[in-house]
Design a protein around this nucleic acid. Structure first.
Lengths: 327, 327
DNA sequence: CGTTTTTCTGGTATCGCTACCAGCATATGA
DNA sequence: TCATATGCTGGTAGCGATACCAGAAAAACG
């Protein structure tokens, strides 16, 4: 920058201003600076800028798994909004492990991110302390926490699972099995299971633990779970899966076995991915507004960075039942 | 850090050393520093550290689309390796636009990343200049460029598409259609198409442009393309799709229309995602070593950052044909 | 035992930028 | 007309760490 200033015949301060707040600088200076910048291909050092102004333009994001396409659509939307506001995204995955989340949060804070998005609402004590001490705005997402760290943008896993179960009952299904994703350290899975049970209770149906199976997320796990459920309960007429991969795995298994869907058994899923819409038969599911969650999260962060007052808030973006051929 | 030093009764320098190279500091000092650090919950400011040492621990990654799960498995693998080496990942997507890539690369360089991974091998002139001027190690991936910027880790799209086409021919298919992804500004798609044509030429078959359709990546685009190909060529007995979503979309369309796969028409795809393995019928495809690409890219970067000499290199990680039920 | 080497610690000077204040010109008001 | 406001520009002093060098203390050596 020193060089640019010398070659433009102005002071370094003027260069800095010309680049960041062109309006504060006269037309002539701006021209001279721009010319010098172009001539030397100067790239301002944002590290120095951040240090000096103690303001960074990087947002940290922790998701349970980068591989999962559900997070991808949220990440994409958040990324777009942030980029439009001159911010960048640092992404890491916790592998669903609380201790990894802790390490990542502290690394991000050491990196002096200007905001955090955590796709998780259950945190270790140290995470809560670190975040609080840092004063950095934080978004939690993926579930609606009772006691948010700062801001939360999500939908209710409980409500969604409950609504789908009631929906299946309303369609006339009498024996509905539920396949959950692993619930350890995962309040989202736990809430979904609770929602399912709550619906059964409301319907006055017996709560039968053997109607629920836990499965890791994978096509064969879904297939396997369905088969086990049907074997245990020959009268099972609907399967509700907590993840779209499980559901499609089950659907494929039905095709292999020649079980009519929904004639022999109905299938319902969580999350509205393209695959479910195009599968044969198309699959009934819950539309979770992933992109909106990403967008809204980013917007709230941006607003806060622009000086909006810090206030704890929970934004519930809801969900929608998408009734399709499979039920 | 000043505070920590005061409270530990040592100089700031000693604190810095105790944290970064504990071996260079006496047992006693280390204990005092650690105690103070824990007491105050001190997090070193990496921004300041980076500025001072002109060394950062952030790697920039540009993919065409964050949403695409293919990139996700590569990102995950890269992220794991980098994290194990104390590096972080800053991710952005170019939306397949060269001008966006340019903006991102310059933003990353301004951020003083210590390395770059670009999932793309066609760059604007300014990108080449910026990267060269910065001296930052770069990995290009997604294709094997003729003239790599620095290091390239990939497979050959040309070879892969050619091999699959030959494979289908060897299985006895006489009229093989090809559905390509958009080729504009995308050398990967272009290479795949070239590979398909090269195979046909080798087989002594007429090169018929009407056997090739371009489709945006989506289930319905795949379905639509297949139908159009079959309508134009009633004798079409195999469809080779440049993307797994296209292939599955086509497969679903066959199910809807009652076309036996592979009896009426065979289907082959690019990339070995779980979906293709579990679909009914399972889909013949090309296994591209995405995780290996991510891992290897990260390893090369790390090695370079540890002082390995800069040398241009191209690593071809190959591919594999996975023959399944659909062909 | 003196001297050289090794190990450890602390001071000082940046790293490249921005905040903040001071100064000068020009515009605005009475 | 002078006084006050306004707009631009430049100087100085950090931001919070590390690099580098210089001592002091301890260890190793002949």
């Amino acid at each position: 920058m020193r060089d640019i200033a010398r070659h433009a015949g102005v002071s370094p301060m003027t260069v800095s201003r010309a680049l960041r707040q062109p309006s504060k600088v006269s037309e002539e200076m701006r021209r001279k600076v721009d010319a010098a910048v172009r001539e030397f291909g100067y790239l301002p050092n944002r590290i120095a800028g951040s240090l000096s102004s103690s303001r960074s333009n990087v947002v940290g994001l922790v998701v349970p798994s980068i591989r999962n396409s559900l997070y991808a659509s949220m990440i994409q939307a958040a990324s777009d909004v942030l980029r439009a506001n001159g911010l960048h995204l640092m992404i890491a995955d916790s592998g669903h492990r609380l201790e990894d989340e802790e390490a990542l949060v502290s690394a991000f804070l050491a990196q002096r991110v200007c905001g955090l998005i955590l796709h998780n609402t259950v945190h270790s004590k140290r995470v809560r302390k670190l975040v609080e001490a840092s004063g950095v705005p934080v978004i939690e997402t993926g579930n609606l926490p009772d006691d948010p760290l700062d801001m939360a943008v999500s939908y209710s896993n409980f409500d969604a699972a409950r609504a789908m179960t009631l929906h299946l009952a309303r369609l006339g299904y009498r024996r509905i099995g539920f396949v959950t994703l692993p619930v350890r350290d995962n309040d989202r899975s736990e809430e979904r299971r609770r929602g399912y049970f709550a619906a059964l209770a409301e319907l006055g149906r017996p709560v039968d633990d053997t109607l629920v199976l836990e499965a890791a997320g994978g096509f064969s796990e879904g297939a396997d779970a369905l088969v086990r459920l049907v074997n245990a309960h020959p009268d099972l007429d609907a399967g509700f899966f907590a993840g779209e991969v499980l559901a499609v795995g089950a659907l494929f298994e039905c095709q292999r076995r020649g079980w009519a869907v929904p004639g022999r058994i109905a299938i319902a899923s969580f999350d509205d991915v393209d695959l479910l819409r195009h599968a044969v038969p198309s699959v009934t599911t819950l539309r979770i507004p992933r992109p909106e969650i990403g967008r809204r999260s980013a917007e709230l962060l941006v607003r806060r960075l622009q000086g909006a007052p810090a206030e704890r808030l929970k934004v519930d973006l809801g969900f929608e039942i998408v009734q399709r051929e499979s039920s």
